[in-house]
Simulated scan of single mutants.
Amino acid sequence: MNKIKNSSMFFLWAGAAISITEIYTGGMIAPLGIKKGLIAILIGHIIGTLFLAFGGYISFKGNKNAMDKVTDSFGGVGSKLVSILNVLQLIGWSAIMIIQGARTISSQVKIPTSMAIVVVGGIIFLWSILFNNYTKKVNDISVIILIVLCILLFLEIHSGGMVVKGGQSISLTTAIEITIAMPVSWLPVIGDYTKDGKSGKGVFISSFFGYFIGSILMYALGLYISFFTGKDIIAFLSEKGIIASLIVLLATVTTTFIDVYSAVISSKQIYEYKNKNLVTLIYCAVSILLAFVFPMENYQNFLLLIGSVFVPVYTVVSVDYIFKRKCTININFIAIITAILGVLIYNYFNNNNLGVPTIFTFLTVAAIYYIFTFFMKKSLSVVE
């Protein structure tokens, strides 16, 4: 990939954040009310996006994509395991984006949802294979248009009721956690792009503010729609004509092509391939097929599952980067065991509603991994 300017990096990650999925997630926070909801959104984005931008910075400094940096900590075999999980979650994300985009577009232009799924998936495929050489400027312009359209959509929100219904609730900590989980879900992806940035400082700042601004806008939009109209997000957008249609189509494309492209990049850790476009086509086809059957009612659980896996993984990567260490064997068992413990810790805190799982998991995993490697670094061939 050619070098990405800071402005394009900003719009790349703003585009990744501007999606119907983030609007949908913002709508989940509505039972908290506007004030507490916005506080949760702000806190969650500060934590999650700092983690995300640091992950991108690490890849830039090492001039390595996301999974290559994982190899530096987990070893070649260990990184294959992480890469498999990453490809699966990226295909899952692509399917979710295609479903939500297709449902809204289907209701707008009066075509079957199945047809809309295929159309949206096809456009994503074309955008994915053209991004490297042709669509950076088009992507920048598309994101600018998206931001303007989203601001216009705020003006379309009129109070008509509240989304809070009997038995429906969400805690402040859960709201913060699902806000953190969204930027964290991009951790195994961001390095595929930031490694081609212009400077470390530029990469960190542009990716942070691009995602931070775009994602807060989306979460707030979802919060306002659900709280003030009492309507389902897709139902609301379906009533808003051409503005909503353009938002959904552009947002779906500018977000999902990043998932597909990075799934292709991550696959290099798993198997050798010569034709990148063919692999892109296969992953788009699989995402389209999955979109027909994905259980959207489990969306929140899917989002938290990603956090439970990649927060521990990138905590290990961050610790090794900070202490300038690199694994020189095929598999770092201490890294894998620590990451598995991190998954269990995350789920324990999440299932028992104890604080903010991401923060506790990060601190606990960092401490465990540092202590284990401090005493066992020679046998593990982890060198400083």
Rank of each mutant, 00 (worst) to 15 (best):
N2R: 15
I4S: 06
F10M: 09
G15F: 09
E22I: 13
I23L: 12
M28I: 11
M28N: 06
A30H: 06
L32R: 06
K35S: 02
K35R: 06
A40K: 00
I41M: 00
G44E: 02
L52I: 04
F54M: 07
I58T: 07
S59G: 15
M67N: 13
V70Q: 03
T71C: 09
F74A: 02
G75D: 01
G78Y: 15
V82W: 05
L85Y: 11
N86C: 13
N86P: 02
V87R: 04
I96N: 08
I99C: 14
I99K: 14
T104I: 15
I105S: 05
S106T: 05
S106Q: 04
S106V: 07
S106A: 12
V109I: 15
K110L: 14
T113D: 10
T113K: 13
T113Q: 13
A116I: 09
V118R: 03
I124S: 04
S128N: 07
N132P: 01
N133P: 03
Y134H: 10
D140E: 14
I141P: 02
I157V: 14
I157C: 04
G161L: 09
M162T: 15
V163E: 10
I180P: 00
A181H: 00
M182V: 14
K195I: 06
D196P: 03
S199V: 08
V203D: 03
F204P: 00
S207R: 11
I213K: 01
M218Y: 05
L221K: 02
L223W: 00
S226K: 09
A235S: 12
E239T: 14
L246R: 04
I247C: 04
L249P: 03
L250W: 08
L250Q: 05
L250D: 03
V253P: 02
I258C: 08
V260A: 06
S266K: 07
S267A: 13
K268Q: 13
Q269P: 04
I270H: 01
Y271I: 13
Y271M: 15
K274A: 07
K274E: 14
N275L: 06
K276W: 12
L278A: 15
T280P: 04
L281F: 15
L281G: 07
L290V: 13
M296F: 11
M296W: 09
E297D: 11
Q300M: 13
N301R: 10
F302L: 15
L303F: 03
L303W: 05
G307V: 08
V309E: 02
F310L: 03
F310G: 00
P312K: 12
V313H: 10
T315G: 05
V319W: 08
V319L: 06
I329D: 09
I340A: 12
Y348T: 03
Y348E: 01
N353M: 13
P357D: 02
F360A: 08
F362D: 01
L363I: 15
F375S: 11
S379Y: 14
V382D: 01
V383I: 12
